[in-house]
Design a protein around this nucleic acid. Sequence first.
DNA 1: TCATAATATGAATTTTACTTCATACTGTAA
DNA 2: TTACAGTATGAAGTAAAATTCATATTATGA
Lengths: 104, 104
Amino acid sequence: MIEELQDPHRIFFKTLGNQKRWEIITLLEDGPRRATEIAEKLGHEQSLISHHLKRLLMCGFVHVQPNGTERVYSLNEKTIQPLLKMVHRHIETYCEKKCTECGP
Amino acid sequence: MIEELQDPHRIFFKTLGNQKRWEIITLLEDGPRRATEIAEKLGHEQSLISHHLKRLLMCGFVHVQPNGTERVYSLNEKTIQPLLKMVHRHIETYCEKKCTECGP
DNA sequence: TCATAATATGAATTTTACTTCATACTGTAA
DNA sequence: TTACAGTATGAAGTAAAATTCATATTATGA
């Protein structure tokens, strides 16, 4: 089903390597939220958030639950939680003095 | 040392979410390699690989060992190995039918 | 010390991803 | 059955990152 053509690993990391999507993930750590609510809390346009939510959804980082005309998004904690732990550990161990230089 | 300014998480994922850098990591899974060797095996310019190696190094994903005028790069397996496992598991579980749509 | 092989660097260009905008879709209640 | 709130979408514009190219650096052996 997945071809190397699209390289899911790359997409996995690219999806997470975006500021706004990271903000969404961080917000959803406090619990599920409606799309508009996310946009408001983060102070971004509704359509921008919608684009990013689509991407997060496609990559399986969030789930969605329709509720009338609303859509309630929640975090896929099974992936996100251990991933965050791993990232923290790596950064603490290897990046204390380096990462400030390692990218824009 | 690390400020939110630079957001190390984002950089972590951005660094990994790049095709060429992923190729380098994959190659280094077979063992340490000189910079030129990497460029040759991957069929890319020396300077391009050098730029990417710098980024991987800064983010702590590879180590380097000078050897005369050469520099031998090797994988930081402590981070990369468990990370790969986690990514594979996630993709298998959540992305079988989705990730082909989830990004360019 | 000079020449050379190996690698790194900076800046300009090219490519890719993000954002905005206008609009379309989808349920629901009046 | 229409009006509306909530959300999604595509395409155009904008911003950011990757690549190339020319050149610099560095260690080494003649």
